[in-house]
Design a protein around this nucleic acid. Structure first.
Lengths: 196, 196
DNA sequence: GTCTATATATAGATAGAC
DNA sequence: GTCTATCTATATATAGAC
């Protein structure tokens, strides 16, 4: 984004994730989405990876660490989309790329993306999570323009909440990906203010 | 609704709920919202009510029964709003009452309302729950008109998902009820098609 | 309708060998 | 990096007295 005036920096700490850790995160993401965080046990995670609980505990010291790592992996996907948007030459293009990217993420992940906003503990965690707030601010800036205030944040919350909420709503459970994608794109058009 | 052509019937089975059962449901609703369904134990519920686990098990045979009863209590609140809307004399008035009612429910309950769409088990349960689908269809009809199709259902999903999603979004955690309410009302105006 | 007491399973987590 | 074995706490659930 040429007119950003701010260097796009990735502050989400993508600490060097080993292959073993990545397997745990991947399995956890699926299980969290299917059963909820609280109802997913370390035994279930270990079974899904194909190792014992002790092996999982060798990669992460507590279950909470797994939850956080999984949530941050989802956040990293989102940040990738924001990166791509900010790399565009105009704000109009940037916004288009961002919206398409968010919709794609939501549709592809379907329920995993919901972890962000569904589990109370995760919500609580992210509410106080500086990297999350930073990514959301960057996202907000691409959508709404340079001046971020109270109202812009709420609008951004509405857009992202609506998208995440729709993909996991019982009423759209039977919808195929393409239809869902196009409905969500229509939705964003109605929710976003016109470009100026 | 005079032009409904369909008798409004309450099919949500509000089985005779004893006072003791109501206390359990109320406490559970709060705890589920705060900690998630899976992380809420029967001990926590019993403590919140001020009795022992055994007393709770006298009211409900399993934890799942409590989850279902709590979810149906939330559904009953929603159905109350739909009832009120359908009692209006015109569709314009009905839609206004319905939207105001849904927003009020969401704001007052804040996180409890999210149980519907947050816990994967509850989502799964409602997706196959006939009374839920019936209430959603009635809601959909008030919002979108008599002809309910694929597209109308998705629009309804979007509206309710957006509202539920927003109230529990980290970005609006610090917002007072009145501001949140007015933002949500603006939201519904943007999402609903104009009355014809 | 509520209690004490208990059965049984599983949770999260650790020790130490390979 | 993974294992077996184990600790301890807590989970769901039940039996039977008051």
């Amino acid at each position: 984004m040429s007119d950003a005036g701010v260097v796009a920096e990735r502050i989400v700490p993508r600490r060097n994730t080993s292959a073993a850790q990545a397997r745990v995160i991947g399995a956890s993401l699926e299980l969290f989405a299917r059963h909820g965080v609280g109802r997913t046990s370390l035994q279930m995670i270990a079974d899904a990876v194909g190792v014992t609980k002790a092996a999982v505990y060798h990669q992460f010291r507590t279950k909470d660490e797994i939850v956080i790592a999984a949530a941050e992996a989802e956040l990293a996907s989102l940040e990738g989309v924001v990166d791509a948007a900010e790399a565009e030459s105009s704000r109009t293009k940037a916004r288009g790329v961002l919206v398409l990217g968010i919709v794609d993420l939501a549709v592809e992940h379907r329920r995993p993306v919901s972890i962000f906003l569904s589990d109370p503990d995760v919500v609580q965690y992210f509410a106080e999570h500086e990297p999350f707030r930073h990514v959301m601010d960057r996202l907000c800036r691409v959508l709404m323009g340079q001046t971020i205030g109270h109202e812009e944040r709420v609008s951004t919350a509405i857009l992202t909440a609506a998208i995440s909420g729709v993909v996991m709503h019982p009423l759209v459970a039977g919808l195929d990906d393409d239809t869902l994608r196009s409905e969500l794109q229509q939705l964003t058009r109605r929710l976003l203010p016109p470009m100026n």
